[in-house]
Amino acid sequence: MKQVELVNGDLRFPALMAGSGEPVILLHGFPDTYENWAVQINALAAAGYTAIAPALRGYAPSCQSGSGDYSVYAAVDDLMVFAAQLGGRVHLIGHDWGAAVGYLACAQSPETFCSFSALSIPPLRRIPQALLKVPEQVLLSGYMQFFQLPVAPEAWLKRGDLSGVDTLWRRWSPDWDPGLYLDNAKHTLAEPGVIKAALGWYRAMFKLWKKDQRKALSWLGQDIATPTQILIGENDGCMSPKLLEHTLVESDFSGGVELQRIANAGHFLHLEQPEVINDHLLRLLNNTRCD
């Protein structure tokens, strides 16, 4: 495994990379780091793939937007540039925000993605309606409203030794000791500007007056022609598994979709149950070759 960089304009995204063969991009979420994909990278490389996990926009000083643009539209643009740099056709694996970006990218450019594995996030298209039927998700997502405030969210996350980050990890993946994974995430989030940038993703969500944000949201109404699997931890404390009853509609996925419920796992399921998750990831990859 080696440290590399992907580039979009003047932004430079640190990444981990290993292997040779068809490219697989792995996108992390919040509050996490690209470094925590290491187990998956090694497994994919051993199976004959080129696995590359970049930092999301803002998660390193070198890829922080001078304009403060942390919209999903910008994130999809980053991903499309990465895919082009890797040959134009790639597999995609995304967790949390990485999965959200993946749903939008696959809807907008299905020809780019040979397969898509979405971890911990149900299909986005029908979430607004699902919230009316799963009110517990409104409570679980309360942190998103809190993150809209100025100053206070940064202070809460940074207090002590980033104890706010500890709180989120332990709430979202209960009954699990994250150990080094949490240390890795906190090391990344402690870098200059990273927490502000990470919160910028949430603050961009509701800026519907911006043309790019409205355009990205319009992609939600499009069919997903990329073969897709959704992996959800049964103990997820961030996104209620009950949402799947109202968001997973097979006709929204013309390329096919499978659901995998992962026992004894919460929101960070790929770190909690790596062997189980890797088996699912490789099964889809092996069944959806890019050639």
Rank of each mutant, 00 (worst) to 15 (best):
N235C: 01
A225D: 10
D223H: 14
L217T: 03
S240H: 10
M205I: 10
L208R: 06
L208K: 09
L217W: 07
A216R: 02
I232M: 13
R203S: 12
G193L: 11
R214N: 13
I230H: 07
A197E: 01
G233A: 04
G200P: 04
S218F: 07
P192Y: 12
N235Q: 12
G237F: 07
I195Y: 06
D236L: 06
Q213T: 14
E245V: 08
L208H: 12
L231M: 12
W219T: 15
K196T: 10
A198D: 09
K210W: 09
L231Y: 03
I230E: 00
V194F: 13
C238W: 04
Y202R: 07
H246N: 05
A216F: 08
G193S: 06
Q229T: 11
G200S: 12
E234R: 07
A197I: 04
C238F: 02
G237S: 07
T226P: 00
W219I: 08
M205F: 13
K210I: 13
I232E: 10
E234L: 07
A225N: 05
A197F: 03
D223Y: 06
K215W: 10
E191T: 07
F206M: 08
N235V: 00
I224C: 02
I232A: 04
K211Q: 15
Q222P: 02
S240F: 06
L243S: 01
G233E: 02
S240C: 04
L244F: 14
L243I: 05
L231H: 01
S218Y: 10
D236P: 11
L208C: 05
A204N: 13
A204V: 05
L199Y: 03
D212G: 07
K215D: 11
K242D: 11
A216M: 13
A216W: 12
P192D: 14
P192W: 11
H246L: 01
G237K: 02
I195L: 12
A216L: 08
T226C: 04
K211R: 15
A216S: 14
G200D: 05
Q213V: 15
K196F: 09
G221F: 04
A204I: 00
G233R: 01
K242P: 06
L244P: 02
G233M: 01
E245M: 10
F206E: 12
D212F: 03
G200I: 08
Y202D: 01
K196M: 06
K242R: 15
L244A: 08
Q213M: 14
M239T: 13
Q222A: 14
L217P: 05
K196V: 10
K215G: 09
K211D: 14
M239L: 14
G221H: 04
M239R: 03
D236G: 07
I195M: 05
E191M: 15
K211F: 15
T228D: 06
E191L: 15
L243N: 03
A225F: 06
C238Y: 03
L243K: 02
D236Q: 09
L217S: 09
G237Q: 09
Y202P: 01
A198N: 04
F206P: 02
A216D: 08
G233L: 05
A198F: 05
G237R: 01
L199I: 08
L217Y: 13
E191D: 11
G237W: 08
E234S: 09
K242S: 09
N235R: 13
A197P: 02
Y202H: 03
A225H: 03
L231E: 00
